[in-house]
Structure formats: C-alpha cells, structure tokens
Amino acid sequence: MALIKDQQLSCSHAATPEMRFTDWVSGGSDAGDAVLANGADDLPSLLAQAGKLSMIAIEFDTFADGRGFSMARMLRRQGYAGEIRAVGDVAMDRIDFMQRVGFNAFELRDDQDALQALQKIGEVSVHFQPSADGKGPAYMV
C-alpha cells in the first residue's frame, strides 16, 4: 500500500497502528503510542487524550463517511502536531480536501496510483475557507 506523507511518496514510515483508540484507552493510555480511530469513536475523549499520541490514523470505512474530516479539523485546531493519517477507503479525489482539514499522511487504496494522487494535492489552488495549511481567502489573513 502506497503512502503519501507530507506531500511526498514515503518509503520508510511507521506502520499503520492496529491498536484501536478504545482499546488504548482501556489498556492504560501509554504516551507516545499510535492509534486507529474512526467516526464512531468517542471524539471528546480522543481530543482530550490526543496530546499523548504520536500518530492518529483515522479510518474511512467508506469514502462517503465524512466524519473523519471534522475529526482531523478539530485535532489540528487544538494544536495536535503529530501525524494524522487517512486510512481505509482513501482515494486521490479526496486527499486535497483531507490535507486541507489537517491530514498529513494518506495510505492509499490499492487501486490508486500514488504518483497521480500526489498531483491531486493543490489541484484547486485557491480556497474560500481557512484550513489547516494556513491558506485561506485574502480577508482572513
């Protein structure tokens, strides 16, 4: 599975965590761990504990489940600086939006061409909204 991280194809990177956020919470919440979360998880709890986590992989069961977009946005908003990785049904037609809400890594679906996907970041280069990458309409600067 190809991984794009920080706008580059990544060859060496941490594996996507298998530990689910809920198990991590019940298992002692060790600092520095990486977890797998999705839209069904307890978001206030994730936000409260995020500071301890080195990576949060947000899973898209289906590409149409947009909850992960708000999760990433809220994590970045409160200053989470670790990796937010999109995993699951992740395709090139959404990674630009994903990047703008705060994802910085994308584990692409098997049928995706990673080089082509890389081109999709910034395909629409101007935005009407503020976003995690600091770009926004002129009046918001």
Binding site: A64, G66, D96, F97, R100, V101, V124, F128, Q129, S131
Partner: peptide, 14 residues
Amino acid sequence: RQWSTLHPEFAYLP
C-alpha cells in the same frame, strides 16, 4: 456562497 464553495470539511455530509 463563498464559504460553502468547495468546503473541504463539509463535502461528505450525511
């Protein structure tokens, strides 16, 4: 219109 156009967070609502 401007705020809602290509809003990255709200393109996959329920």
